[in-house]
């Protein structure tokens, strides 16, 4: 009887020791998991309309309410908690004067285009490398410059205007951080509609009236809206119809819906045709 008691005591002690060891290990695992979760929580950046134009960084505006939700499949912005995140007033726009002050906002592109002021001082300063007065090209035929092509890959194959326009029809000759209008006056990169409307007047009218393009915020006609400008949805260097047959670049779609119960794939009807 005593022997059994001793054995049981020993067994119990061993069990206790083992249990504490396991518990310690489990606790360590949990802390490791928590650390991993924190690392994964580093700010998620998702693109908005098209890749390469504008991005939003995810953050919490209220406990449990993010400013934006990103798609885990494609990385696109899927849901806006705060539509006016990081916006500035649009500035003067002919035809929108009746809107209350500050009710038309845009998201500035200055961060994305931080390199542009440098272009105007480094190379495109209106002063040629050898000659003064400016050594600007005599004819308007673009010549391939390796540095330019590496900085802006789009210039190799400009898909806009079907060969009838070139760089300086839209970009300012010397102020490289500006666009240009018909009179040679600079236009901000945040207001490309003033430039695009030079040719696409019908689209500008529809955009101004809210039936072309995208706005987020309040739906009332005089409500506060964030206006998406032309270049946030269209890549101006690549808008001609190509394979896609539309004015937008192709993008990856979000995952398809759930198939009906029992159906293996969407080719079901091809394999089992419906009687006609």
């Amino acid at each position: 009887m005593k022997k059994i008691a001793i054995f049981t005591v020993a067994l119990a002690l061993c069990g206790g020791a083992l249990y504490t060891a396991f518990a310690l290990e489990k606790a360590q695992e949990e802390t490791a998991l928590a650390q991993a979760a924190q690392e994964a929580k580093e700010p998620q950046v998702c693109f908005e309309s098209r890749k390469g134009s504008s991005e939003v960084t995810q953050r919490e505006i209220q406990p449990g309410l993010p400013n934006v939700k990103c798609s885990p499949t494609t990385g696109a912005a899927l849901w806006y908690g705060d539509p006016f995140d990081g916006t500035v007033p649009m500035g003067k726009m002919p035809g929108l004067e009746q809107l209350p002050e500050g009710h038309a906002v845009v998201r500035p592109r200055s961060e994305k285009l931080a390199i542009l002021p440098m272009c105007g001082t480094a190379c495109h300063n209106g002063v040629g490398p050898t000659a003064n007065p400016p050594n600007l090209p005599k004819d308007k035929r673009p010549t391939a410059i390796p540095v330019m092509e590496s900085l802006v890959p789009d210039v190799k194959d400009l898909q806009h205007g079907r060969g009838r326009i070139w760089c300086l029809d839209c970009h300012h000759t010397t102020k490289r951080d500006k666009l240009v209008d018909h009179f040679g006056d600079p236009i901000s990169f945040d207001q490309p509609q003033l430039l695009c409307g030079k040719c696409h007047g019908d689209k500008l009218r529809d955009w101004r009236d809210g039936i072309h393009g995208k706005r987020i915020g309040e739906f009332a006609s005089d409500g506060k809206k964030r206006w998406f400008t032309c270049t946030e949805c269209h890549n101006p260097h690549n808008v001609q119809d190509g394979e896609r047959n539309r004015g937008f670049i192709q993008l990856q779609p979000e995952p398809p819906p759930q198939l009906p119960n029992g159906m293996k794939d969407a080719r079901h009807e091809l394999v089992h045709p419906v009687a006609h």
Binding site: K214, I216, G217, E218, C233
Partner: peptide, 20 residues
């Protein structure tokens, strides 16, 4: 409360329009 529906806000090509 005057805000656009979620699908209108997220459409990347601005195909969706909502209003009064």
């Amino acid at each position: 409360h005057g805000r656009y529906p979620a699908c209108v806000e997220v459409c990347p090509v601005g195909a969706r329009k909502f209003g009064n």
